[in-house]
Computed example of a mutant assay.
Amino acid sequence: MAPYEALYGRKCRSPIFWEEVGERKIVDPTTLPWIEDAYEKVKIIRQRIQAAQSQQKSYIDNRRKDLEFEDGDRAFLKITILKARIMTGKGKKLKPRIHDVFHVSLLKKYYPDPTHVLQPKDLEIDESLTYKEQPVQLLDRKVKELRRKKISLVKVLWRNHGMEEMA
């Protein structure tokens, strides 16, 4: 029994189950053509919903990959911590919360490659695993003019980054 029916003692009136309030009479659906039309429309709606659901399921199933991890495997974890810093001006409710639990869909398996290993070049990393950036040279300057503002753009060569990272 549905909660509505248990509370009010009658079924909820909806296009799927449209019941008159008051006395109940047994009516032959063939005598009233609109009842038969309503049943046919409900059947068509259910068929179309089922077709849409199966189409969406097949699309998702084709793109889904089964991930299997073993002890010692490495993986990438997709995180969006930096968005929290961008949203500091917004309300507290809109800030993303950090949890120690994440969904497996955020993992991507890592396949080791020796070219991925970076050797640190005299980096002074503190306890929070950060380091201080230091500029080496100013390479280019531009002034971008908007309608009412002028914005200065500066291209900087940083100490721990190469020339290919600037572009």
Rank of each mutant, 00 (worst) to 15 (best):
I81T: 15
V42H: 08
K25T: 08
K142Q: 15
Q119F: 04
R64W: 04
D126C: 01
G89Q: 01
E5R: 13
Q53L: 13
S105E: 04
Q47W: 02
F17S: 11
F17Y: 10
I86H: 12
R24V: 13
G9C: 01
S128Q: 03
K142I: 09
I45L: 12
D37K: 15
D61K: 11
I81E: 15
Y39I: 12
K92D: 12
T30G: 07
K43P: 00
E127F: 04
K132L: 14
A51G: 04
P112N: 03
Q134R: 05
Q56K: 14
L94P: 01
E36M: 15
R63A: 08
I35F: 12
P112T: 02
V42C: 08
V117P: 00
E36T: 15
F69P: 01
I81W: 14
L67Y: 07
P29T: 01
D100M: 05
A75S: 02
Q119L: 07
A75G: 00
A2T: 15
K78P: 01
D122V: 03
V21W: 03
Y4Q: 03
P96S: 08
V21L: 06
P15N: 05
K142H: 13
F102M: 11
I125M: 03
K93S: 14
L94H: 10
P135W: 02
L138G: 11
K78M: 09
D71C: 11
Y59A: 08
I44S: 05
P96Q: 05
I98N: 15
T30N: 11
E36V: 11
Y131L: 07
Y131N: 03
L67A: 13
H116V: 00
E19C: 07
D100W: 06
T80S: 15
L7P: 00
Q47F: 03
G22P: 01
S58Y: 03
T130L: 05
S54K: 09
R97A: 10
K121A: 12
E5S: 11
P120A: 07
P3C: 04
K132N: 08
G22K: 02
I81G: 12
G89S: 00
L32Q: 11
Y59W: 09
T115S: 09
W18S: 13
R63W: 03
V21T: 05
H103S: 08
Q56S: 14
T115M: 02
T80Q: 15
V42T: 13
Q137F: 10
A52W: 00
Y4H: 07
Q134E: 12
K25C: 11
W18L: 14
Y110F: 02
Y110G: 01
W18A: 14
E124M: 10
R97L: 12
W18M: 12
E19A: 05
Y8T: 09
R141F: 14
R48Y: 04
Y8P: 00
M1S: 15
R24L: 13
D100H: 08
I44E: 10
A84Y: 10
I49S: 07
G9Q: 02
K78H: 10
P135F: 04
R46G: 02
S54M: 08
L94K: 13
K108P: 00
K108E: 14
D28H: 03
G91T: 08
I35L: 15
I60R: 07
H99F: 05
